[in-house]
Simulated scan of single mutants.
Amino acid sequence: MNLPIVKVAAVHAAPVYMDAAATVSKAVALIEEAARHGAELVAFPESFVPGFPVWAALWAPIYNHDWFRRMVSNSILVNGPEMAQIQGAARRNGVFVSLGFSESTEVSVGCIWNSNVIVGDDGAILNHHRKLVPTFYEKMVWAAGDGHGLRVSDTRIGRLGALICGENTNPLARYSLAAQGEQIHISAWPAIWPTRMPSSGMNFDNLAANRIRAGGHSFEAKVFGILNAGFMDKTMFDALAASGDHQAVEVLENTPRAATQFLDPTGAVIGDTLQAEEGIAYATFDLNDCIEPKQFHDIVGYYNRFDIFNVEIDRRRLAPVKFSPDNANAKAEPRGDRIGIADPTSIDVA
């Protein structure tokens, strides 16, 4: 067996905060830059387009209506013109792209999801995943996703899988990808994730928590990991601090920053690490290194008890309505790829 050796890039960059068009233009430029440096896979952080809703952590919902409207108006369709620009950049540069984005839908003006796509080097969308459960204050922004995107994409550079932020805390979500032969796992994270006032000394440590979860998956599944975090620049900081709320400024200034780094199949850090500065991190993955650790414990092979543990994943795409064929208005039914008509396929990894 001779598996690929691939150079990967992780974008540790800030969006043009709450500006989808400008952020997509920035993403295209970053894809081109990474491709010039030999990357074959370019990954972006959680909700890179149009930015992570940190404001939901800073203020109660009754103060966030304007922020929510701004977020909704800058969320994008998976089959819209902004995504087409990302697909075009992937195709022109012959690279694979993993993009975190806030997804809108044509069937509601206010429903958005925390989503991720993997785009092929031919520009086709290989997988489209919606975060299963928005975490903590994210519930006030995004709707819950479904299992449709719990898929691994089999490509010329390896089998690619991705989960969003706290999903990497869910053993069953991670196992669903491992059980499909995943070899490169992309975990996408925000720049900061406040949970308490910094003065309490008990805030959520992005650096440690993300490293533990991503490292655990690399070690358990014997896969390479791209731990891809966002970055908060001055523009984003100033936008969030513009209210003059001193407590909000304290949170923004002193909440631990997340890091972007890479992991080998033992969970060890390899390649570049970025935390305090914006840029693109690079690493080289020799997928042949996934083989030897499987001798020790292959959780989707011999090192399991499928006679005891039975796991079934429902991958139907949830939809708000089902139209019967004999309905007089059936011809007005929105396209399935826009509203997520149920996909009957499912996998039984047991």
Rank of each mutant, 00 (worst) to 15 (best):
A89Y: 05
R70M: 05
R70S: 11
E82I: 01
A89K: 03
R92P: 00
I86C: 10
I76P: 02
L58K: 02
I86L: 13
S73L: 05
N93H: 12
A60N: 07
M83V: 13
W59F: 08
G100K: 14
S108M: 10
V72P: 05
W59D: 06
A90L: 10
G94C: 05
V95Y: 07
H65F: 03
W59K: 15
Q85L: 10
A84W: 00
I76K: 04
L99K: 05
E103V: 05
G94E: 00
L77G: 06
G110P: 00
G80E: 07
F101V: 04
R69F: 01
N93G: 05
N93A: 09
V109M: 09
P81M: 00
A57W: 11
N74E: 14
N74G: 09
V109P: 09
V109Q: 14
S75E: 13
S102V: 15
G94M: 03
N93D: 02
F68G: 00
T105L: 08
M71T: 13
P61E: 12
N74F: 04
H65D: 05
E106S: 05
F96Y: 15
R92Y: 02
S73Q: 14
V107E: 10
N114D: 15
A89G: 07
E82A: 12
G88A: 06
N114Y: 06
G100E: 13
E106F: 01
T105E: 02
V109T: 14
I86K: 04
I76H: 07
Q87C: 15
I112F: 05
F96A: 07
R70H: 03
G94H: 10
G110D: 15
V107W: 11
T105Y: 07
I112N: 13
F101T: 08
Q85A: 10
S73C: 04
H65N: 09
L99N: 02
L99Y: 02
N74I: 06
G110R: 13
F96M: 09
F96E: 02
P61F: 00
S108Y: 02
E103G: 07
R69M: 11
P61G: 01
S108E: 11
V78C: 09
L58I: 06
W113S: 11
A90N: 05
I62D: 12
